[in-house]
């Protein structure tokens, strides 16, 4: 079993698969609308100059998410 990790731990260049969303309320709905559901592949593209938020490639679009929200997204990091 892999250690459960969250999206904020993903480093630029790494890819991962979403395991589950722990967010609730508006943020959860927003993430779902962006196509971030279970088994979605996510890639971290980079971090902003002050380290937060980070940019992720989600279903062909680049979305910036704050660390406090990405901590709530559990992932499996893909080994390449």
């Amino acid at each position: 079993m892999e250690h459960p990790r969250n999206l904020s731990e993903l480093l630029p260049g790494q890819s991962a698969e979403v395991r589950s969303l722990q967010t609730v309320g508006p943020m959860r709905r927003r993430l779902l609308d962006l196509g971030l559901i279970e088994h979605t592949e996510v890639m971290c593209l980079g971090k902003s100059p002050l380290g937060d938020p980070s940019a992720y490639l989600i279903r062909g679009a680049v979305i910036a998410i704050r660390a406090k929200d990405s901590r709530q997204i559990l992932i499996n990091i893909k080994q390449t």
Partner: peptide, 11 residues
């Protein structure tokens, strides 16, 4: 407190 934030960065 800050609310939900997502921002799309278009090409």
């Amino acid at each position: 407190i800050p609310s939900a934030f997502t921002l799309e960065l278009p090409p």
